[in-house]
Amino acid sequence: MCVHPSHCTGSMTDQKTQFDPRELAPFMFSASHNGFLGMKYRDHGEDWMELELPWREDLVGDSEQHVLASGPIISLMDMASGMAIWTRMNSFMAVATLDLRVDYLRPAKERHAVIGRSQCYHLTRSAAFVRGIAHDGDKDDPVASMAGVFMTIGGSAPLVA
């Protein structure tokens, strides 16, 4: 399964640890795939997370168009969703993406960063349900919409008691 990085704490135990996305983001985005993409923290609330993916020439999906490829947008939405789940749980435990759907509503603006915003709208003992959008400045005019389900990884604690 697609498992979220744990290198900011180095542990995947079932102990409940406080999760402060603003504080942890620089560590989570310092290396590996998220670091390569250059993801940045923007904002968060009780059950949602907003990340930014800066525009970069080598991440375009078509050499004739200066628009980010769809692949990095999936990475952005997947990561924003994982962090929205940890934020709602206020805990950093291993979760894995089970199902993720992205609808591409329109192309992003040329040479533009894309912002991913995801909300964890429901939690059960073993599953977390997320939905969100990607936009390029105006959240009322999204580039993509997303829906997904994440699961706890075997051996870790339930998402809700």
């Binding site: 697609c2 498992v3 290396a31």
Partner: peptide
């Protein structure tokens, strides 16, 4: 890479 020694789901999707 996502979690240490595992592919990131976004890279798999890509």
């Amino acid at each position: 890479q996502g979690r240490p020694s595992h592919f990131h789901g976004g890279a798999i999707s890509g």
